[in-house]
Measured scan of single mutants.
Amino acid sequence: MGSVRTNRYSIVSSEEDGMKLATMAVANGFGNGKSKVHTRQQCRSRFVKKDGHCNVQFINVGEKGQRYLADIFTTCVDIRWRWMLVIFCLAFVLSWLFFGCVFWLIALLHGDLDTDYKDDDDKSKVSKACVSEVNSFTAAFLFSIETQTTIGYGFRCVTDECPIAVFMVVFQSIVGCIIDAFIIGAVMAKMAKPKKRNETLVFSHNAVIAMRDGKLCLMWRVGNLRKSHLVEAHVRAQLLKSRITSEGEYIPLDQIDINVGFDSGIDRIFLVSPITIVHEIDEDSPLYDLSKQDIDNADFEIVVILEGMVEATAMTTQCRSSYLANEILWGHRYEPVLFEEKHYYKVDYSRFHKTYEVPNTPLCSARDLAEKKYILSNANSFCYENEVALTSKEEEEDSENGVPESTSTDSPPGIDLHNQASVPLEPRPLRRESEIGSRR
């Protein structure tokens, strides 16, 4: 089982795998120059863009038009607004034209077009017409509009002379109601789609790998820009990579689940303020055997998904993003964004995407760390350097704002901070800030 798991979770494809794949392509008759073999020097295209759209195009789909027309309502909801407006206008105009032609044909076959009612006051002739005051196609078209929109100006009306005319008036009224219901329903469904809710759900630009509770963890940050909550919010993550099976089958995008606390339930989050999602790199993680150097040379993509129900409509929305291997910062942490004021908490989104480097973060893999092949620094050293990194950030910001350097908390000259780390230190809580992250 261990060997199978290692093969499945191998992220960085070796040169031997690339040569094996190329040999397979030639042997199977696919070596026509169009096949692409992804190596370390040639990274694959992003499968999920940063804005959440999937970078996929469908080609050679059989009976595409028929399949889309069979699900016309979903098609109308998914198309762009400009095409929705075109369909909206065409549906009414074509129905008016169709029934206008029908009423014109009825008048033509009944002989109503030969009668001039402007110079004739004989009401008996008017009563013999199928539709009064309809003696041309324009008049028939206007009567069709008046019937379907129930305008009723009063000059044109159907008589009991022709039952077919009466039937067409009733039929057009029913068709008009159906068109109204369909168009209004599609427009309302399109307006109520929770897709735009994703514009106020954000992911951090970069993911980070750092120590948390004595273990290497992959972390990324999510935030909600609205005050309205995302009900039943939960997160998922998958690692996408290519691999070759033991039988020699090439899988271009193998999807591997990344555990973010599904078993323990901590994948469900209360997204009021930005939260750091934590994936513990343990023996079940696809990143277990990867060191910093392996991450730098790897070719994979981590897709992160945030799902929840919109509070206003109770409709489920899904926000997506992805991180390539070069977008994962090893040995970094996110800057705090949640600050405790006197009577409330304040979230500073200008710090949302910012990170700071944490010294002495192990550069080895989580496996080597678990097997004690890498000796961690003293816990006080880690905490102290973590505090120094934050303090230096604040000093830089104070210097930019014009604060005198004498007010900063610099260490005395001639003292090495790293050498001082081995000395037991008193706890130094942050002056006014605390970061709330997901705790395992």
Score class of each variant (00 low, 15 high):
residue 2 G to E: 09
residue 2 G to C: 03
residue 2 G to M: 03
residue 4 V to T: 14
residue 6 T to P: 13
residue 6 T to W: 04
residue 8 R to Y: 08
residue 9 Y to L: 13
residue 9 Y to I: 14
residue 10 S to I: 04
residue 10 S to V: 05
residue 14 S to I: 06
residue 14 S to R: 07
residue 15 E to A: 09
residue 18 G to W: 03
residue 18 G to Y: 06
residue 18 G to N: 08
residue 22 A to Y: 04
residue 22 A to G: 13
residue 23 T to I: 03
residue 24 M to T: 12
residue 28 N to H: 10
residue 31 G to R: 04
residue 33 G to K: 11
residue 34 K to S: 13
residue 35 S to E: 15
residue 38 H to C: 08
residue 40 R to K: 13
residue 41 Q to A: 11
residue 47 F to L: 14
residue 53 H to Y: 06
residue 54 C to W: 06
residue 56 V to L: 12
residue 59 I to A: 15
residue 61 V to A: 08
residue 62 G to N: 09
residue 63 E to M: 07
residue 63 E to Y: 09
residue 65 G to K: 14
residue 65 G to C: 11
residue 72 I to Q: 13
residue 74 T to G: 14
residue 74 T to M: 05
residue 75 T to P: 15
residue 76 C to E: 10
residue 77 V to F: 14
residue 77 V to T: 10
residue 78 D to R: 15
residue 81 W to F: 12
residue 82 R to I: 14
residue 83 W to N: 14
residue 85 L to Q: 02
residue 86 V to N: 13
residue 87 I to R: 15
residue 92 F to H: 06
residue 92 F to C: 14
residue 93 V to W: 01
residue 96 W to D: 00
residue 97 L to K: 01
residue 101 C to N: 06
residue 103 F to R: 00
residue 103 F to K: 00
residue 108 L to T: 14
residue 109 L to A: 15
residue 110 H to N: 04
residue 111 G to H: 05
residue 112 D to T: 02
residue 112 D to N: 06
residue 112 D to K: 03
residue 112 D to F: 00
residue 112 D to C: 01
residue 113 L to M: 10
residue 113 L to H: 08
residue 115 T to R: 03
residue 117 Y to T: 00
residue 117 Y to H: 01
residue 120 D to A: 00
residue 121 D to C: 01
residue 126 V to D: 07
residue 127 S to V: 15
residue 128 K to N: 08
residue 129 A to T: 05
residue 130 C to M: 03
residue 131 V to I: 11
residue 134 V to I: 06
residue 142 L to S: 02
residue 142 L to A: 03
residue 151 I to R: 06
residue 153 Y to F: 04
residue 155 F to M: 10
residue 156 R to V: 02
residue 157 C to Q: 07
residue 159 T to L: 01
residue 159 T to N: 04
residue 160 D to Y: 02
residue 163 P to Y: 06
residue 163 P to H: 11
residue 163 P to Q: 05
residue 165 A to F: 00
residue 168 M to C: 07
residue 168 M to K: 00
residue 174 I to V: 04
residue 175 V to F: 07
residue 176 G to T: 03
residue 177 C to W: 15
residue 179 I to V: 11
residue 181 A to G: 03
residue 181 A to D: 03
residue 185 G to C: 13
residue 186 A to F: 06
residue 186 A to L: 04
residue 186 A to V: 10
residue 187 V to S: 06
residue 190 K to Y: 03
residue 191 M to D: 05
residue 191 M to Y: 05
residue 192 A to N: 07
residue 197 R to M: 11
residue 197 R to P: 07
residue 199 E to Q: 10
residue 200 T to M: 06
residue 204 S to T: 08
residue 207 A to G: 14
residue 208 V to F: 01
residue 210 A to W: 03
residue 211 M to D: 03
residue 215 K to N: 04
residue 215 K to F: 03
residue 216 L to M: 05
residue 217 C to Y: 06
residue 219 M to D: 00
residue 220 W to I: 06
residue 220 W to V: 08
residue 221 R to K: 01
residue 228 S to L: 08
residue 229 H to D: 13
residue 235 V to I: 07
residue 241 K to F: 10
residue 242 S to C: 11
residue 243 R to T: 13
residue 243 R to K: 12
residue 244 I to L: 08
residue 245 T to I: 04
residue 247 E to P: 12
residue 247 E to I: 04
residue 248 G to I: 02
residue 248 G to E: 14
residue 249 E to P: 08
residue 251 I to S: 14
residue 254 D to S: 06
residue 256 I to V: 07
residue 256 I to S: 09
residue 257 D to A: 07
residue 266 I to C: 09
residue 267 D to Y: 03
residue 270 F to C: 09
residue 270 F to S: 08
residue 270 F to N: 07
residue 271 L to P: 04
residue 272 V to E: 10
residue 274 P to S: 03
residue 276 T to C: 05
residue 276 T to R: 02
residue 277 I to T: 02
residue 283 E to G: 12
residue 283 E to S: 07
residue 285 S to W: 01
residue 287 L to K: 01
residue 288 Y to L: 00
residue 290 L to M: 10
residue 297 N to E: 13
residue 298 A to I: 09
residue 301 E to T: 01
residue 303 V to N: 02
residue 303 V to P: 00
residue 305 I to A: 08
residue 305 I to E: 10
residue 309 M to D: 06
residue 312 A to N: 06
residue 316 T to V: 13
residue 318 Q to H: 07
residue 318 Q to I: 10
residue 319 C to D: 10
residue 319 C to W: 13
residue 322 S to K: 01
residue 322 S to P: 00
residue 323 Y to R: 01
residue 326 N to R: 07
residue 332 H to L: 01
residue 332 H to D: 02
residue 334 Y to P: 03
residue 337 V to F: 06
residue 338 L to P: 02
residue 340 E to D: 08
residue 340 E to S: 10
residue 346 K to N: 03
residue 347 V to Y: 09
residue 348 D to N: 08
residue 348 D to F: 01
residue 355 T to S: 04
residue 358 V to D: 11
residue 359 P to L: 08
residue 364 C to M: 08
residue 364 C to N: 02
residue 366 A to Y: 01
residue 366 A to L: 00
residue 368 D to V: 10
residue 368 D to A: 07
residue 370 A to D: 08
residue 371 E to P: 06
residue 372 K to H: 13
residue 373 K to L: 10
residue 377 S to Q: 10
residue 382 F to N: 03
residue 384 Y to Q: 12
residue 386 N to T: 12
residue 387 E to V: 01
residue 390 L to W: 05
residue 391 T to W: 07
residue 397 E to W: 06
residue 397 E to Y: 08
residue 397 E to G: 11
residue 398 D to E: 08
residue 399 S to H: 09
residue 399 S to P: 08
residue 400 E to T: 14
residue 402 G to N: 12
residue 402 G to D: 11
residue 403 V to T: 07
residue 405 E to L: 09
residue 407 T to A: 05
residue 407 T to R: 11
residue 411 S to L: 09
residue 413 P to M: 14
residue 414 G to T: 12
residue 419 N to F: 08
residue 420 Q to C: 08
residue 422 S to K: 07
residue 423 V to H: 10
residue 424 P to Q: 13
residue 425 L to A: 12
residue 426 E to W: 03
residue 426 E to R: 07
residue 429 P to E: 14
residue 431 R to K: 13
residue 433 E to S: 07
residue 435 E to Y: 04
residue 436 I to M: 06
residue 436 I to L: 14
